[in-house]
């Protein structure tokens, strides 16, 4: 394993992204910069339209003085990191028990028909992608979905239509 130690960290990322990553680094003990890897990956993923490239992961590794492989391990373990392009709006629909018994299948079918894609796919214009997710801890509002950082609860097909129309 090799750790690429880069002397001049300013060759990575924009100043804004670096400032955001540095805010994460500051939360942890000085010798545990690696703790900032999850935050850093999320920041660069958001900057890159919602997904991570190998190059971005290598840059995060260099910035945090970690072996690249350690960053890949993290990026592949957690479900919110995307290793392939996603839509501008990533629609995550919960289908676990409380949502399922409140007809999440109707919501899924509606979205699939409306967007013409299934789980794991992106619309041709790149605007939307669909993802099946496990319980998001909002069962009181079942059926529910998450788009970007926002939760949407108590869904019906009509409400879904209105939400999608409201997106840029």
């Amino acid at each position: 394993m090799t750790t690429t130690t880069v002397k001049d960290k300013t060759e990575h990322f924009t100043p804004e992204v670096r400032a955001e990553i540095d805010r994460w680094i500051a939360k942890y003990p000085a010798e545990w910069k690696q703790s900032a890897v999850m935050g850093a990956l999320m920041i660069v993923q958001d900057e890159n339209g919602g997904w991570l490239t190998n190059q971005l992961m290598d840059q995060v590794a260099a910035y945090l003085d970690m072996p690249s492989i350690a960053v890949y391990e993290v990026a592949t373990f957690y479900s919110m990191y995307e290793l392939k392009p996603v839509g501008k709006h990533k629609i995550c629909v919960c289908t676990n028990v409380s949502c399922m018994t409140n007809k999440s299948d109707v919501i899924v079918e509606h979205l699939e028909k409306k967007l013409g894609i299934g789980f794991g796919q992106v619309t041709e214009d790149g605007r939307f992608s669909l993802k099946e997710v496990e319980c998001l801890g909002a069962c009181g509002g079942a059926p529910m979905m998450q788009i970007g950082k926002q939760y949407y609860e108590n869904l019906t097909p009509e409400i879904v239509d209105a939400i999608l129309e409201g997106l840029e």
């Binding site: 939360k27 942890y28 545990w32 690696q34 703790s35 900032a36 890897v37 999850m38 935050g39 990956l41 999320m42 945090l64 970690m66 350690a70 391990e73 993290v74 373990f77 957690y78 479900s79 919110m80 990191y81 997710v133 496990e134």
Partner: peptide, 27 residues
């Protein structure tokens, strides 16, 4: 006191997986 943000993994609710995760590793 600081907040750490996960990234989608039920197993990180298990206390020692959670600690691994804060340390910047797989949970």
């Amino acid at each position: 006191l600081h907040a750490h943000l996960g990234a989608g993994a039920y197993i990180c609710g298990e206390e020692t997986a959670l600690l691994e995760s804060i340390e910047g590793k797989k949970g």
